[in-house]
């Protein structure tokens, strides 16, 4: 194959987000055609604001998956941090300015335990975070005594329902986190180190990446983001409940994978993750519009997940043929 020819084909190389874009467009068009209420401002704002909690968690999950790891503890950490926030503000009447940083630090601490077990003690990520998954959820129940904590400060609940420039504050926070994580991943040395770690651990170490520190940091970030998400979950729910954040890990992983990030690591796309989140929300919205039970969402999501992976396979085969 001549150079010119291959370059010609290179021009038609499809982005990794092809699958998710195609699915999102098809589903949205279908819903917009069937239901006029789908493309009203209120509905679209609803779609966005419902992604915010999962969005924060999924942004960090993208980094974790980029290293080839996985963090299934985030949902439980969200529950634990929410209870910590509730206990501090309600039972110990701390001010939000100290309680919020402590909550995020508690999340970071859980992440640090995960990161240390994985990077220093070389436990498989799924095992270390499985242990944290059990322990953090149990911790949330022990701390709260199994009850929900209500009577949170008004400032916190206002944060959950307030908006700025017509966009809910939770969406601003999630959007900022997604953009920051995207920049972190693609434009900073740390981000490149994450990707090189996921691509080839030995090569990364030989080229001078402190793989232990990089890997641990990723889980710390994931824990911190779970802490931040717990604040939004608590604010939006107006109570701190110990079983908050259930299935967040599943949703975040689904969003990341639907977005086109391969689970083996080494490559990642934050734009894909954001689109994956939107796809999930649009699917959920569609299920509600069809007045179906919430379980249909999971069924459709399973199909969407498999379809996204299929489209990605097709894209890669096409690329391989071209080169």
């Amino acid at each position: 194959m001549t150079n010119v020819n291959s370059r010609f084909k290179m021009a038609f190389r499809l982005p990794v987000e092809t699958g998710v874009i195609a699915l999102l467009v098809v589903i949205s068009l279908w819903l917009a055609r069937t239901f006029p209420s789908f493309h009203t401002g209120a509905n679209i704002s609803d779609i966005f604001s419902n992604c915010s909690e999962t969005g924060i968690v999924a942004a960090a999950m993208t980094l974790v998956i980029a290293t080839g790891g996985i963090d299934i503890s985030v949902g439980s950490v969200v529950g634990l941090c929410g209870v910590i926030l509730g206990t501090l503000t309600v039972n110990h009447s701390w001010s939000l300015y100290t309680a919020i940083p402590i909550t995020i630090l508690a999340g970071a601490f859980c992440g640090w335990i995960n990161g240390t077990l994985i990077s220093r003690f070389k436990l498989p990520p799924i095992i270390a975070t499985l242990a944290m998954f059990s322990a953090a959820r149990a911790g949330a129940y022990v701390l709260s005594g199994g009850d929900s904590i209500s009577g949170l400060p008004d400032a916190l609940t206002n944060l959950g329902y307030g908006s700025w420039m017509g966009v809910p504050i939770s969406v601003w926070i999630a959007g900022t986190i997604l953009v920051l994580m995207g920049i972190l991943l693609k434009k900073t040395r740390f981000g490149r180190q994450i990707l090189s770690l996921g691509g080839n651990r030995v090569a990364a170490q030989l080229s001078g990446v402190n793989i232990m520190r990089t890997e641990a940091s990723v889980y710390v970030i994931s824990g911190m983001m779970a802490g931040l998400a717990s604040i939004i979950v608590t604010a939006r729910g107006a109570t701190a409940v110990p079983d908050a954040g259930q299935f967040f890990e599943l949703r975040a992983i689904t969003a990341v994978v639907v977005g086109g990030t391969p689970v083996i690591g080494g490559r990642a796309t934050m734009i894909g993750t954001a689109l994956g989140l939107l796809t999930m929300r649009v699917v959920q919205n569609g299920v509600t519009l069809y007045k179906k039970d919430g379980m249909w969402e999971n069924l459709v999501m399973a199909v969407v997940l498999l379809l996204a992976v299929e489209v990605d396979r097709w894209r890669r085969t096409r690329e391989m043929k071209a080169s």
Binding site: L117, I127, L130, A131, A135, R137, A138, G139, G146
Partner: peptide, 16 residues
């Protein structure tokens, strides 16, 4: 609710 703490610890023990 507390089982999780112990089970988490045992998983870690096994992994170690």
């Amino acid at each position: 609710e507390q089982y999780g703490l112990v089970i988490g610890a045992v998983i870690l023990l096994a992994a170690f």
